[in-house]
């Protein structure tokens, strides 16, 4: 469905600060895949997401969706079929507006129309949807989103994302900034939405165990390259120790990122 061919992303070309954020990445994503992406800081996980979502167009290479070349499409245009959830729970919602206003904006992608679509029936639909989150938000539909907790905002962001049934969902450490209880909750929502809405998901995580527990595919990145891919049965047999060992074998050095090991 989404295909990356030899995608490179280079910052500061021709300067001493040249950084190769992505180095000839080729990767194909099929419908229904749930890919977990791991790697240490600066490995290129977020750059990969930024290239796919259109925030930073790649320096070279081609990104295509169902054989349509979307490499130069701006971010807002790709957002029509890509949903992205960031680590910061404030990023996905407008805090100065009510829950129902946020949901109205999210109910269809693209240029918004000059019509009032928020009516009684819509509000009831929204209450129904919000009750899925099991956070009591269905009773706070006209409260400003700024009054919600981080966990509630992130759950709302997840709901807003699935409203427009995106073809691809990018989860960028979407639970990392939450407390353990809310993180658990948002992860549970992630699996539930994945199966209920038949999503295709890429999820960046710092937590190796999480990367192994979730999804049918796993990729490990380092210095802008995909250094390890595992799928299906091969992935389900992987363990954290095995991953660390494989990294060592591939890179000829040990995985020294504390954050990765400790989590």
């Amino acid at each position: 469905m989404i295909k990356l061919s030899d995608v490179s992303l280079i910052f500061g070309e021709g300067t001493p600060d040249r950084v190769e954020a992505l180095n000839n990445i080729s990767f194909q994503l099929n419908h229904g895949d749930f890919v977990t992406v791991i790697g240490s800081n600066g490995a290129g996980k977020s750059s990969l997401f930024n290239a796919v979502s259109g925030l930073y167009p790649p320096t070279s290479g081609v990104i295509s969706k169902n054989k349509v070349d979307i490499t130069r499409w701006p971010e807002y245009k790709r957002a029509a079929f890509i949903g992205r959830v960031f680590q910061d729970p404030l990023m996905g919602t407008a805090g100065n507006m009510s829950v129902q206003d946020n949901l109205t904006i999210a109910s269809y992608k693209g240029m918004k129309k000059l019509k009032i679509s928020l009516n009684k029936q819509k509000k009831n639909e929204f209450r129904e949807l919000l009750s899925q989150l099991e956070m009591g938000l269905e009773d706070r539909i006209s409260d400003n989103v700024g009054q919600l907790s981080g966990g509630q905002r992130q759950a709302l962001t997840m709901l807003m994302m699935v409203l427009s049934s995106p073809d691809l969902v990018l989860l960028d450490e979407h639970t990392a900034a939450l407390d353990p209880r809310n993180a658990e909750k948002v992860l549970e929502l992630t699996s539930r939405f994945y199966s209920n809405y038949k999503l295709t998901v890429m999820m960046v995580t710092h937590n190796m165990k999480m990367a192994l527990d979730f999804g049918n595919r796993l990729i490990m990145m380092d210095r802008g390259e995909i250094i390890l891919e595992a799928e299906g049965k091969e992935k389900s047999r992987l363990t954290v120790d095995e991953l660390v060992k494989r990294f060592h074998d591939i890179r000829g050095m040990s995985l020294t990122n504390d954050e990765t090991l400790l989590s």
Binding site: T93, D101, G110, K112
Partner: peptide
């Protein structure tokens, strides 16, 4: 009335969080 339309709401969101507006597919 304008600020209650979908377009008006999106303008309201733009001032608060431009990233969110982009993520919802508006230019």
């Amino acid at each position: 009335a304008f600020f209650h339309t979908d377009l008006g709401l999106t303008l309201g969101a733009l001032g608060g969080n431009e990233r969110m507006v982009v993520a919802q597919g508006s230019n």
